[in-house]
Structures are given as C-alpha cells and as structure tokens.
C-alpha cells in the first residue's frame, strides 16, 4: 500500500513568483520523511506539489517531474483528482467538515469515490478510526458532530478521514502545530504506527519532532527573503541531527540561525 516518490528538478510558482527551485529527492516507501527549514523556505509549497494541491491556488503552477513509482503525476493524461485520491493530506489546522458527524467525516472520502454498502462503510470507518487511535474515544458518539471534538481528536479524525480512502502516501503539513503537547504525542505515536503501511511525509517546525518521528530528514532553506527556497540536504535523520554535511543545516538545527 506504500509507494516511492521521486522528484526531479521541480520548480513551483505563485503567479510570477518562484517559490521553490530545482528540488530533486527520493522519498522511500514505508518510512517517515520530515521536511524542516525556516518559515517561507517553501517546504509546505513543496509538500503540496506532491499531490497536486499546489495548483488549487489561482495562478499557481509547477515545472519539473514528480513520479509515484512508474507514474508521472504531472503527466498530461493524469487527472489531479485521482492523484489526490492516491496521496492523502492532513493539514496544519484540523479541518473536519463542520456540518458532518464523526462517522460521516470519516466516510466522506469513500462516498465521493463511489457506492459503498453500509456494512462495508461501517467496517472501514471503524478500521480507520482505530488506525487513527481515535476509536475508543468516539465509538459511542459517532453520530455527534466532528467539530465538537477537542483539537487533538479533530486532527486524528482528519487522519482517519485521510486513511479511510486507503491512500499510498500520506502528506502532513505541520499536523501538530495547533495542538497541545499531549495531543502532539498522540499524533506522533500514530505516525510511527502508520509508517508500517504508508509512505509518510511530514512538514514540521519542531526539530525535536522531526528527530523523534522521521527516518529521513530534508532541510530546506532560502538565500534571502523573496528568493526561491531550495533543498539544502537530505539524509538519514540521525545523520542530519548529529553530523550534517552542510554548514547551513548545522546552523539551523543548533539554533544559530539568523
């Protein structure tokens, strides 16, 4: 259920502004890859190019190649809708559908993808909520609104919603930045569990988090404000945090960054 992503020479634009430039990397299946870097370095933008969410913003476009195993995601015959079905996403702020119940939130993606029988749906909703470590907390109130949960529970609900459609890859854009430490821990445990089945990419501002959850880490930086962000280096997380190859990486992770 997990696939490798290969990126080659990727540039992304907002209108005429080039946000990221010349990014090439390989993201391994069944592992957690973390993107770190200062604000505005384009790591979230890059993440959104991986499931074609970048182009949702008016005027945004991408140049370069992203391959999921043997498929070119930006190929002319590829439907962006099917890309997003294959590569799921969890956002910075928990965003369950406010008018839907907990059950309907998890089932939302499945209902989009076509007819599923009620009993099948019940099973997938339960599996997904269990997969997101939320089942025990909500199993008695599945018909209650999803927006009534706590922030951490909402974020796990969003993860359950994302994995319910059985994606190949799960992209997470700072999934814990709006959560308290206990909820953060719950999400981090979940990430470690999910990587057995999925390819996970996580953007984080929290370097301890990157060190705790990820197998490989990519450090992004930008030369100056207004310049495009670039990939500085990518390596095993233990190597990035103990013995990085680049001076800029070392400066950033040790906090000696301007």
């Amino acid at each position: 259920m997990a696939k490798q992503i290969e990126v080659a020479g990727l540039d992304a634009y907002y209108g005429s502004h080039k946000a990221i430039e010349g990014i090439s990397m390989t993201i391994e299946p069944r592992s957690v890859t973390a993107f770190i870097g200062p604000s505005g370095c384009g790591k979230s933008t890059f993440l959104r190019t991986l499931n074609r969410m970048h182009e949702v913003i008016p005027g945004a476009r991408v140049e370069g190649k992203v391959r999921l195993e043997d498929q070119d995601l930006y190929g002319p015959e590829i439907d962006p809708v099917s890309v997003r079905r294959t590569i799921g996403m969890v956002f910075q702020r928990p965003n369950p559908f406010p008018t839907m119940s907990i059950y309907d939130n998890v089932a939302a993606g499945l209902r989009l993808n076509g007819r599923v029988s009620r009993s099948q749906l019940d099973g997938i909703v339960e599996d997904s909520l269990k997969g997101a470590n939320l089942w025990n907390e909500v199993k008695d109130r599945l018909a209650r609104p999803g927006a009534g949960l706590s922030g951490g529970q909402q974020q796990r609900l969003c993860i359950a919603r994302a994995i319910a459609v059985r994606p190949q890859v799960l992209l997470m854009d700072e999934p814990c930045s709006a959560l308290d430490p206990i909820s953060t821990l719950a999400i981090e445990d979940l990430i470690s569990k999910l990587k057995q089945d999925y390819t996970i990419v996580i953007v984080t501002h929290n370097m301890q988090q990157a060190a705790r959850v990820s197998d490989r880490t990519a450090f992004f930086n930008l030369a100056a404000q207004g310049q495009p962000g670039k990939l500085v280096e990518m390596d095993e997380t233990s190597k990035i945090f103990t013995n990085p190859a680049e001076k800029a990486t070392e400066d950033y992770i040790t906090g000696r960054f301007g």
Binding site: V81, R84, M89, N95, T99, A108, L112, R161, V165
Partner: peptide
C-alpha cells in the same frame, strides 16, 4: 465558505462539484 474545508474535500479526491457539495453547500445552507 472556509478555504480549509474546501481544501480538505479536494485533498480527499473530490472533483470541483463534489467539493462544492461537501464543503460549500452545507456551509451556505
């Protein structure tokens, strides 16, 4: 209609009309 919810629907693999049905119409009801 909150952009957050629209993006949530799109990220689940919704077409534009499905996005409107899940995120915009319930909000606008």
């Amino acid at each position: 209609a909150p952009k957050m919810q629209e993006e949530a629907a799109l990220a689940l693999g919704a077409t534009r009309w499905e996005m409107i049905r899940t995120a915009v119409l319930p909000f606008g009801r």
